[in-house]
Design a binder for these strands. Structure first.
Length: 386
RNA sequence: GCCGAGUUGGUGGAGUGGUCAAUCACGGCUGACUGUAAAUCAGCUGCCUUACGGCUUCGGGGGUUCGAAUCCCUCACUCGGCA
């Protein structure tokens, strides 16, 4: 893989780059829509192309359970062929799923027996049929090799962000040992593979742990460095920003940096100013399905509208006057989309999903453009980190 | 005109003597959602009160009863059937 740094902002750590992958070049900073089970919910590949998506996510956990990575490998050779998506794909490792399954089980009082983490890996039970599975650093690489993604993520231990220092340190150290094993395995099997393998920094909200983790993960020959565990368990926005701040200085400049699971437009602008290149988040798609439209921009401010509320019943405006998404460009009114939501017509959530994805993707287009033209910190001054 | 069935909160519709301010669904309001077990989930939804609690309700009026949305009488209206 090649990561070209094209330009660096003079006032912030923001950078404009180019990620060369087997299925194409990704312009950074970039937002990656999430397509967990091999589908960005409610939209097609053609939609994603038209919206300007350059790379999407798939998930090891879900695709392993169904239809299984072996099925995809044997019958279609790759996830790309299976779903018909020609641009790059990043596959997440399932570490986060193991974490969130455990949290859900705990919330239901089922205790931790649903997920068990040992030195070997993470044992968990399928949410589909209850069958028992073991994810190890090696197994998770094999699954992602079967899927043929452009970027693979390693199995990591992803603790509750509100856990104490000792628990988060323990999870971080586990993540490091698994990272080491993953790298050793990958070096053994990768051969001429064009796939890339990123590392994940953990350490929760703690400066010492984030530094230690960033240094350790950066010392391994990963193709890029991700920062994980910043959007789990409802930490405050400040802690999110601080966690990035603690880690970034110890991540080398010549590797792409990926902030996992973030997020909201204003959080991503801030993180770009902190030197992050890549983002993914379910919010634009999930909120779209839940009736919410993201609107606004850095000039007017950002806002979100709950279109299902009755105040929009007679609103003839499009979702966002300045938006160039298919819903806004073709004049679909808030009143009509409100009606579609009330009727539970699938077109409603589809239009909102298209709109929210475009909202985010066009924000990144503006950030890249402003970086190229040297006015990033001016254009986004209200939203960048101090 | 006669016979029968019915009239419950924004809507549909339970309830057929006390545990009923009244199941439930829809609608309404509020909130949540961040590497997707989510086109999902949670709370509120007669009036007053932060709460405890209090108050007025089940077509109108009257009655029986310690006690009625539930039983009786009557009036009004709705829907069937017969004329």
């Amino acid at each position: 893989m090649k990561f070209n740094l094209l330009k660096t902002d003079t006032k912030t750590r923001a950078r404009r780059g180019e990620l060369h992958l087997a299925h194409g070049v990704v312009q950074t900073p970039i937002f990656m829509p999430v397509g967990t089970v091999g589908s960005v919910k409610a939209v097609s590949n053609e939609d994603l192309d038209a919206l300007g998506a350059q790379i999407i996510l798939g998930n090891t956990y879900h695709l392993h359970l169904r239809p299984t990575s072996e099925f995809i490998k044997d019958h279609f050779d790759s996830l790309h062929n299976f779903m018909g998506w020609k641009k790059p794909i990043l596959t997440d490792s399932g570490g986060y799923q193991v974490f969130s399954l455990g949290l859900r089980a705990e919330a239901r009082g089922e205790g931790p027996q649903l997920v068990k983490i040992t030195e070997e890996g993470a044992t968990f039970y399928s949410h589909i049929d209850g069958s028992k599975h073991l994810f190890t650093p090696e197994r998770v690489i094999d699954i992602q090799r079967n899927l043929g993604s452009d970027i693979m993520m390693p199995l990591d231990a992803c603790p509750d962000g509100n856990a104490d220092h000792m628990a988060i340190k323990k999870a971080m150290e586990q993540t490091h040992r698994w990272a080491q094993r993953g790298i050793e395995y990958w070096n053994k099997v990768k051969g001429e593979s064009l796939q890339n393998y990123f590392g994940i920094v953990q350490g929760g909200p703690f400066a010492d742990l984030r530094k230690e983790s960033a240094q350790f993960i950066s010392s391994l020959p990963f193709d890029g460095i991700a920062i994980g565990g910043v959007a789990n368990g409802g930490e405050s926005k400040d802690k999110m920003t601080e966690a990035v701040e603690y880690a970034v200085p110890y991540i080398p400049h010549d590797k792409p940096r990926y902030l996992m699971g973030v997020g909201e437009p204003i959080d991503m602008i801030k993180a770009v100013s902190q030197g992050i290149d890549m983002f993914d988040c379910v919010l634009p798609t999930r909120l779209g399905r839940h009736g919410v439209a993201w609107v606004g921009d850095e000039k007017r401010g950002f806002d979100s509208l709950d279109i299902a509320k009755s105040i929009y019943k007679t609103d003839k405006n499009v979702l966002d006057e300045i938006c160039d998404c298919p819903a806004c460009r073709n004049g679909y009114s808030r009143a009509y989309i409100h009606h579609l939501l009330k009727e539970k017509e699938i077109l409603g959530i589809r239009l909102l999903t298209l709109h929210n994805l475009r909202h985010v993707l066009s924000l990144f287009e503006r950030m890249r453009q402003s970086l190229e033209e040297g006015r990033f910190s001016e254009q986004f001054k209200s939203y960048i980190a101090e």
